[in-house]
């Protein structure tokens, strides 16, 4: 990440800024794209979610921000599911390597579907499918459904245009 043309000046300023920078610098994930996931995990999860809600004339899971939704919730309400995600991703990556010799996200769509169909009944798949649906169809405030992707697809105006009756309570 290029932020100053002069590396020495940059180093000096960084040092001078030491104390204030401690909270940021002490955060090992600072500057990374995801809060909880690694890029590799996010990549796998994105590929799975894009099979669960594939892109077509409307956005799919990844472009609607579903991975952001999952990543945020894994540091929030779904923090208790962190292990389940890590294990699930490891398992499916191993299977992808054994069966096809590639990362899951590098597989052809049919190969991905093969692996997912085999796992359809597993707790991990059910969980990620449900979370993908929440991210895609839920409120954008949680990190998914970018630009109301799913609501536009379903024909739901948002925010609704809704006024009120002008009651005069002194007359009722």
């Amino acid at each position: 990440m290029k932020i100053s043309r002069n590396p020495d000046r940059r180093r000096f300023l960084r040092t001078a800024a030491g104390v204030a920078a401690i909270p940021a610098a002490s955060c090992t994930r600072a500057g990374r794209r995801w809060r909880f996931l690694t890029d590799e995990q996010a990549d796998t999860i994105g590929a799975i979610c894009d099979q669960i809600i594939p892109p077509d004339q409307d956005p799919g899971a990844v472009s609607a921000g579903v991975v952001h939704f999952i990543d945020r919730q894994l540091k929030g309400h779904y923090a208790y599911l962190q292990d389940a995600y890590i294990k699930g991703v490891v398992e499916i990556e191993q299977a992808a390597q054994e069966k096809f010799g590639k990362r899951f996200s590098a597989l052809a769509s049919e190969q991905q579907l093969d692996l997912l169909r085999e796992r359809e009944k597993t707790a991990f798949f059910r969980m990620i499918a449900d979370h993908a649906m929440q991210g895609f169809y839920g409120d954008p405030r949680h990190g998914g459904n970018r630009d109301f992707a799913s609501w536009k697809m379903m024909g739901i105006p948002n925010p609704p245009v809704r006024g009120r009756q002008q009651h005069d309570l002194t007359k009722s």
Partner: peptide, 25 residues
């Protein structure tokens, strides 16, 4: 509401994938 709607999907529609999304749309 949209996410609630998914709890009322018909039995002949798969729980995920293209057909699922098509149905909702």
């Amino acid at each position: 509401l949209p996410y609630q709607f998914l709890g009322r999907m018909p039995p002949w529609i798969p729980a995920w994938g293209k057909e699922h999304k098509d149905f909702v749309r």
